[in-house]
């Protein structure tokens, strides 16, 4: 079982390394991720939000709904933890 898992991991890793051949070079300033949408944030953040820190302005202003959804996820996880770990008293004590 362990050797099978190791073989599967190595095969998946080899496929992923084969996939990096077509990736842009590491740290390339002209990679597609750095040329399409992020120049708007870099150039307009002072005009739009008057915040020097771009990460803050994107997190709380441009993508505020994203942060709201993140808060919802945290709330759901906290409720799930409380519901799972609550010690149930009374009749069904054996269920934990």
């Amino acid at each position: 079982m362990k050797t099978l898992s190791l073989i599967v991991s190595i095969i998946v890793g080899a496929f992923l390394m084969y996939g990096t051949i077509d990736m842009p070079a590491w740290g390339d300033p002209d990679s597609p991720a750095s040329t399409h949408v992020s120049p708007y944030y870099i150039t307009h953040t002072e005009v739009d939000t008057a915040t020097p820190n771009m990460v803050t302005s994107v997190l709380a202003d441009y993508r505020g709904y994203d942060t709201l959804g993140e808060t919802t996820v945290i709330f759901t996880a906290g409720m799930a933890c409380i519901l799972l770990l609550r010690r149930r008293g009374g009749r069904n004590k054996d269920r934990g």
Binding site: S34, V37, S38, Y41, I42, V55, V58, L59, R63, E70
Partner: peptide, 19 residues
């Protein structure tokens, strides 16, 4: 633009760490 790092992946990964 080439003088600053790309801020967008930082924002998305802040969310990913908390999740």
């Amino acid at each position: 633009v080439a003088q600053y790092l790309n801020p967008l992946p930082h924002v998305l990964m802040l969310t990913a760490i908390v999740v």
